[in-house]
Structure formats: structure tokens, C-alpha cells
């Protein structure tokens, strides 16, 4: 009984951390069609922000929820201005440019902090579930992931800013005619995506080890999830996170995390052969 409860919590954890990992990419890649290979490094920067700020005495919640998104959002906007905007619409060039950005960011962080593992301990302590000790923070994380996606959905469907952003992605020329400046919208949307990614990096920092190259462990899974999600980026990402998170966590539970990763990849490739347009291309057509 306890084992079943534990497994359920583990699976929910797997889903929520995968969904968090993908949130910013769902906007930057899913909606803007910008292939940001530095996505993992944005997460890494969010993680470092939380670690550094917390170790410097800042309250960990402030570090995770405010500083990480703020810092990474600003870095995102700078990257967009200096680099990414030159490559809009050119997929392969964007891929290479952001790959270069990713290495550069790793290089800078390595030069500053060294190639060591750091981290912060999770707040809130543990609770007992039968014979098992579980971290309360992990439960909170599940709730935060849900809140985050509700928030994103609300912003992009109900607010003026969200509608302008979606309209511009779909038809920049029309938006320009209506007096909206597409470059500004792109910049702000990219910044929001980066901030969300930083937030995810901050929130996951207490339950992961932070090294400069930690981003690599996120980027492939994040892309696979968002691509499998399909055209309705937000809904698709949630559904795909649900599938992949469950599969990965169950396989990991039975075997090792490495095999969990392998199985995730295989499931993704098979899914994409069956649904070439992604999950939302077929099933949830009219979703965001």
C-alpha cells in the first residue's frame, strides 16, 4: 500500500519536473518556433542563481521564485537582442547559434564557479509515509507545476499581452498593420520563456545537483517532449509530459535512470512515427 502511494508520488514528481523543464521551451520553441538549444543552460543559470543567492543568505523561496526567473529573463532578453533575432525563421542557423550560446554560457559559468557540483538542500523537511521518508518539497513542487501551467494558460488566453503575442506569432504582418511592433513582442515573449525556464531551474535546484554542464541532461528530453506535444504547445507539453514522465519514472523504478532515459527516447520515436504531427496535431486539435 505504502509502496503504491510512493510510486504514485514518484510518478507525479517525474511528470511535474518534466513539465517544469519544458514550460519555457513550450513558449520559445512551441509557440515562437525558435529552436533554443541553450534551453538547458537557461535552466542551469536559474539553478546557479538560486544556489548562489541562497548561500549568500537570501531566503530560498525568494531566490527560486523571484531571483532565478528575473536573472534568466534578463539574460534571455540580452541573448535575443544580440543573437537570436538575427536568425528568426532560419531553423538550422538558429540551432547552431543557440548551440554556440549554450557552450559559451557553460564556459562563462565554469570560468566563474569552476567545474564543481554545488546545490542547496530542499526546504520544508520530510514526512513519513509508512516506512518511507518523503520530502515535503517534492509534493509542493507538484502543486507549483500545476499552478505554473494554469498561469501560463491564463496569460496566453485571457490577457491582452497573451493575445497580442499569439496573434503576432501567427501573423506578424497583420499584427504590424494593427500597430503592434512584432520585434518587441518577440523579445518580450522570448524573455518570458527564458524567465520560466529560469524559474524551473531554480525550483529544481534543491532536488538536483548543479554543475555547469547540467543543462545537457535537460535539453534533449525537453525538446522531445515539446515536439511530441505538437502544434498546441501548452496542452501538448502537458500531455506529453504526462506520458513520458510516467514511462520514465516507472522504468527507472524498475531498472536504472539510464534505462529510463533510453525507454523515453524509444517511446518518443515510436509515438512520432504513429503521430507525425505530434499529439495535438491529431487529438486535441483546437488547443493552445
Amino acid at each position: 500500500m505504502d509502496t503504491v502511494a510512493l510510486l504514485i508520488i514518484e510518478v507525479l514528481n517525474g511528470i511535474s519536473s518534466l513539465a517544469l523543464t519544458c514550460a519555457g521551451l513550450a513558449i520559445i520553441f512551441g509557440m515562437m518556433r525558435v529552436i533554443n538549444f541553450a534551453h538547458g543552460e537557461f535552466m542551469m543559470l536559474g539553478g546557479y542563481t538560486t544556489v548562489v543567492a541562497t548561500n549568500a543568505g537570501v531566503n530560498i523561496w525568494i531566490s527560486m521564485l523571484i531571483l532565478s526567473p528575473l536573472v534568466v529573463g534578463i539574460i534571455g532578453i540580452i541573448s535575443e537582442r544580440l543573437l537570436i533575432r538575427f536568425f528568426y525563421g532560419r531553423l538550422v542557423d538558429t540551432l547552431i547559434a543557440t548551440w554556440g550560446l549554450s557552450l559559451l554560457l557553460i564556459g562563462i559559468v565554469t570560468a566563474i564557479f569552476g567545474n564543481y557540483i554545488t546545490g542547496v538542500s530542499a526546504p520544508l523537511g520530510n514526512f513519513a509515509l509508512g516506512q518511507y521518508q518523503l520530502s515535503i518539497y517534492r509534493l509542493v513542487l507538484i502543486g507549483l507545476a500545476v499552478l505554473l501551467f494554469v498561469g501560463i494558460y491564463f496569460v496566453f488566453t485571457r490577457t491582452r499581452l497573451g493575445l497580442i503575442a499569439r496573434g503576432t506569432m501567427q501573423n506578424p504582418d497583420q499584427a504590424a498593420v494593427l500597430g503592434i511592433s512584432p520585434p518587441r513582442v518577440y523579445m518580450i515573449t522570448f524573455g518570458i520563456g527564458a524567465a520560466l525556464t529560469g524559474l524551473a531551474g531554480g525550483l529544481l535546484a534543491p532536488i538536483s545537483q548543479i554543475i555547469p554542464t547540467v543543462g545537457f541532461t535537460y535539453v534533449a528530453q525537453a525538446f522531445i517532449t515539446v515536439i511530441t506535444g505538437g502544434t498546441g504547445a501548452i496542452t501538448g507539453t502537458i500531455v506529453a509530459s504526462g506520458i513520458f514522465g510516467t514511462v520514465r519514472q516507472l522504468v527507472t523504478y524498475e531498472t536504472t535512470p539510464i534505462i529510463g532515459g533510453v525507454v523515453l527516447l524509444i517511446v518518443a520515436v515510436v509515438l512520432l512515427r504513429l503521430l507525425p504531427q505530434g499529439i495535438t496535431g491529431k487529438i486535441f486539435r483546437r488547443s493552445l
Binding site: 543573437l83 538575427f86 542557423d93 547552431i96 547559434a97 548551440w99 554556440g100 550560446l101 549554450s102 557552450l103 559559451l104 554560457l105 557553460i106 564556459g107 562563462i108 565554469t110 570560468a111 567545474n115 555547469p212 554542464t213
Partner: peptide, 18 residues
């Protein structure tokens, strides 16, 4: 000495792609 592989490679890629 402060340079590391990633820094150099990243900078080179960016220079070339831009």
C-alpha cells in the same frame, strides 16, 4: 588559463555563425 573548452568553442561558433 581562465579559458576553458566550452568558452572557446562557444565563442568560435558564435563568431562564425554571425
Amino acid at each position: 588559463s581562465f579559458l576553458n573548452t566550452y568558452l572557446v568553442f562557444g565563442a568560435i561558433i558564435l563568431i562564425f555563425v554571425l
